[in-house]
Design a protein around this nucleic acid. Structure first.
Lengths: 130, 130
DNA sequence: CTGAATCCAGTGCGATACTG
DNA sequence: CAGTATCGCACTGGATTCAG
C-alpha cells in the first residue's frame, strides 16, 4: 500500500481522477455521523447486541441504527451473527476492515480533540465580526 | 503530537463524554462531503478565487460552494481575502488549521484508497447473498 | 465577478405501529 | 428482541434570479 507515485507534489494521495471519485464516494459513505459513532462503540465495547448498541449510541433512532448497521455490514465493516433462538439474538462485531477504518479515523479524532478550542475561538471571532 | 494519555486502553482518544460530544459535532461538521472536496482542491492548487473553485470541485453548485466556504471560514479553516477592485476579486486560502485538517484526513484517504477493492468485494458478496 | 435571495423538489430521519 | 412498514415534516441542496 501507499506506493507513492513518483510525482513531485505527492503530499496528497490520489492523482487519478477516476479512483478519486470512487474514493470520495466511499469516504462520503463511511464518514457518516452514525457510522462513526457505531464504529466507536463497537471498538470500545466489542461485540454488541442490537438493543445494547441502541443504548450505547447517544440519540440514535432504531431506524438509523438498523440502516447504519446494514450499510456497515454491506461494506464489510461489521459482521452480523444471528442466533436461531427465541427471542431472537443478533450480535454485531467489527471485522478487521472495520477495525482498520477505526484506526484511520483516529487521526481525525485526534485533530478534532487537539484543535477544538482553536475552532471555537475562530467561530467566536467570526461571529463577533459579523 | 499524539502524547497518548497514560490510561490503559488508550487506543481510542476520548474518555470524557462531554468532550466526546463536542468532538463528534465538530467531526460531523468538518467531515462534510463538500468541505472535504474544497479542502482537497485548496491543498492541491493553493490560493484560489471563487469561480476557480467552482470549476475545480466537480459538481458543486454555487450555493453549496458559498455555504461551504463560509462555514470553513467561520471554523478558521480558510482565510478569505477581498480585494476592493471592480469587478470584485476574492481569494480563498487554507489556514494552518485547515492544512492540519487536510493532513489528518490523509489517513482516511489512504484507508479508502487501500481498501476500496475490499469494500467493493464485500458489497458484491452481500448483494449476491440477498 | 462574487454572492445573496427566493423557490421548490427530493429525501433524511424521527415517531409510531405492527410482525416473527 | 430485532427488526419492517408507513407517515409526515424539516431540512438539503439545485436552479434561477437579482444586486453591488
Amino acid at each position: 500500500m501507499s506506493m507513492m507515485k513518483n510525482s513531485a507534489a505527492a503530499a496528497y494521495p490520489t492523482p487519478d481522477p477516476r479512483v478519486e471519485m470512487l474514493v470520495n464516494e466511499l469516504i462520503g459513505r463511511v464518514a457518516d455521523k452514525w457510522t462513526l459513532l457505531v464504529l466507536e462503540e463497537l471498538e470500545e465495547h466489542g461485540t454488541c447486541r442490537f438493543t445494547r448498541l441502541a443504548q450505547l449510541v447517544p440519540g440514535i433512532s432504531q431506524k438509523m441504527l438498523t440502516q447504519t448497521l446494514r450499510a456497515m455490514e454491506r461494506d464489510g465493516l461489521v459482521r452480523r451473527t444471528v442466533y436461531p433462538v427465541v427471542p431472537p439474538k443478533v450480535e454485531y462485531a467489527l471485522t478487521d476492515l472495520g477495525h482498520s477504518l477505526g484506526e484511520a479515523f483516529c487521526g481525525v479524532w485526534h485533530w478534532a480533540e487537539a484543535h477544538l478550542a482553536a475552532v471555537e475561538a475562530a467561530r467566536s471571532a467570526f461571529d463577533a465580526r459579523a
